[in-house]
Amino acid sequence: MNKLQDKLHKGEFVITAEVESPKGPDFGDELEKIKKLRGYVDAVNICDNPMANLRMSPIALSHIIHEQLGIDTIFHLTCRDRNLLGLQSELLGAWALGITNILTLTGDDPKRGDNPSSTGVYDCDSIGLAKIACSLNNGFDISGNELNAKTGFLIGGVLNPLNPDIDLEIDKMKRKIDAGVAFFQTQPVYDVDAYRRFIDKVGNLGVKIIMGIMPLKSYKMAVHFNEKVPGVKIPENILSQLKADPTCGVKIAVEIATKARDFADGIHVMPLGRLSAVIEIARELGRGGR
């Protein structure tokens, strides 16, 4: 049973969190950290070589977490590292291992990462990957050949609700939905009012949108986001709070999460390795661990 899918279908407010995968085959330390999230989150996201930096396979780690900790997972899959044949093979293997939630991504340029001599494949983009997963759900590979059984992935996509070109973002969102995406996790949101306006403009498209939250570590980090990260705008009142108290990032994240509960389908916390921040935010929203 897919607990995350069931909760989203019932309209329950969900909490997901991004966790780190190890750079190497030893997963013990990371597993102990993730274990502390039981009862606080509905699923954890496992990145696929994030920022083009080498990490353990997200499918393998997702299986380990699900089997050993009983926590639902959302594994990321990028088009960067695999051709069309490899993407389909990975998906079939993930389904056989009981991993049912996927986030479809195009992937960062390998030249940005720690193995810059690697070659990006990009046989398709994230929309094409969603179509592949949807085709497997219907019992066929991307070439139309019938499989011996259907998969049943809950297919996710990413969304930037504060893209300056809102119409372009909504158009891309609709194309992802047409490709089979059933839920979205957004980029970090700091302006809740602007996010609410985006949601109102989108209307009811029959999908769930989980709002991204990234607790800021410092005033310097906030300024960097405003200057260098497209689509992320941190309001002046938050900048002022961080300038006065550089440690208040989690407190601000709690305030954002509390406001979002009134209209969002859930929150996705990107804690930058600080899983204690996930727990603090979840507790403020009434979650308890186990």
Rank of each mutant, 00 (worst) to 15 (best):
A60Q: 04
I64S: 06
K176A: 06
L54Q: 10
Q68K: 15
G206Q: 06
G28R: 15
S117F: 04
F184N: 03
S135D: 11
K131V: 04
S21M: 10
P22R: 10
D265R: 07
L77C: 08
A94I: 03
D262M: 09
L97Q: 05
G249S: 08
D191Q: 11
I238P: 05
I281L: 04
F140G: 04
K33V: 07
V181N: 03
K259W: 01
R38Y: 04
E169L: 08
E90W: 02
E30Q: 14
V192R: 01
L77T: 02
L162K: 09
G28W: 03
K233Q: 10
N53G: 08
T151V: 09
D123S: 14
R175C: 05
E20I: 11
Y219G: 10
I102W: 00
T258V: 09
I59S: 09
N45H: 12
N163M: 14
K220Q: 14
Q185P: 03
R197H: 13
F184Q: 05
Y40D: 00
S118Q: 12
G249K: 00
K10W: 01
D72Q: 15
L4M: 10
S218L: 10
R283S: 14
I99M: 07
L239N: 06
N237K: 12
T247I: 04
A264Q: 03
L37W: 00
M214K: 07
I238C: 11
N2S: 14
S62F: 05
N148H: 12
V278A: 06
I34W: 00
V269N: 00
R80M: 07
K172D: 07
I209G: 03
